[in-house]
């Protein structure tokens, strides 16, 4: 393993993040605060408790997941797309590194950035609602796995994208609806039976459910199913990336 190369890519990507530190941190904190004000205080005050949890606290795991998933995808996709766009990708292709090292560098940095933001949102949440974390270890496990798996997915999008419009297409048209309909702001059990069945085809449901379980000990789907879902998604993304580098699809002529 060329660990120096992995570290170089990682540090280079993190430097990009810290160059725009205000935008990186203030934006998620502000948007999360707005969610708490609107859903937690304004609308939430008129909503009964959900599964014995105040609505303000109930939406915290969903809000964290919403930001973590979108940040993971956007950071990772931009991270690999930008070198393609400006042409510096030739350096990666001509360097003595393999695809595992490239992925570790880019996905590692994207996942770290998303993790930072997830932690920032959690800390912000403490200012607005009273929450306790029932299973802190599993909370960290779910958070880290989500950051990694969606950064892998973002990496694939970054390689696939041929322009900036395509870069935004999948997050905007697929991921955002899936996250919103994945139980970020409600419990699946609150839906009519037919929509409950349909929701189980949404992979994000398993992530949010598992993550919410780590906070409150209550979940829409069994915890093992959530873990298997996220592990399966990670494995699928890794397989696709392996295929991309093996064939050179959209990256090597």
């Amino acid at each position: 393993m060329n660990w120096i190369a992995v570290n170089s890519i990682y540090k280079f990507e993190m430097a990009r993040f810290f160059r725009t530190i205000t935008q990186s941190f203030v934006s998620p904190v502000l948007s999360t605060s707005l969610y708490f004000v609107v859903f937690g205080a304004a609308i939430g005050s008129r909503i009964q408790e959900v599964e014995g949890i105040s609505y303000g606290a109930f939406i915290v795991p969903g809000l964290i997941m919403l930001s973590v998933i979108t940040q993971s995808i956007s950071n990772a996709s931009f991270g690999i797309y930008f070198p393609k766009f400006i042409g510096t990708v030739f350096e990666l292709l001509s360097a003595p590194i393999n695809f595992i090292e490239i992925v570790l560098g880019y996905v590692g940095a994207a996942a770290t950035k998303a993790l930072f933001i997830g932690v920032i949102i959690l800390m912000t949440a403490f200012f607005f609602v009273d929450i306790t974390i029932a299973h802190p270890f599993w909370m960290v496990v779910f958070l880290v796995l989500t950051c990694i798996s969606f950064s892998l997915f973002g990496f694939i999008i970054g390689i696939w994208a041929g322009n900036f419009e395509q870069l935004q297409l999948v997050p905007l048209l697929i991921i955002t609806p899936l996250v919103f309909l994945g139980g970020s702001f409600y419990s699946i059990s609150m839906l009519p039976p037919v929509w409950q069945v349909i929701s189980h085809f949404n992979p994000v449901v398993y992530l949010i459910s598992g993550f919410r379980w780590s906070f409150f000990g209550a979940a829409d789907v069994p915890i093992v199913t959530s873990l298997l879902a996220i592990a399966g998604f990670t494995a699928l993304c890794l397989a696709v990336i392996w295929w991309i580098f093996r064939t050179g699809w959209r990256i090597r002529q």
Binding site: I4, N7, E91, A95, P96
Partner: peptide, 12 residues
């Protein structure tokens, strides 16, 4: 930074 990055990519 960019020159340092290039050196690192080659494992130096």
């Amino acid at each position: 930074s960019t020159v340092r990055f290039s050196r690192g990519l080659f494992g130096k």
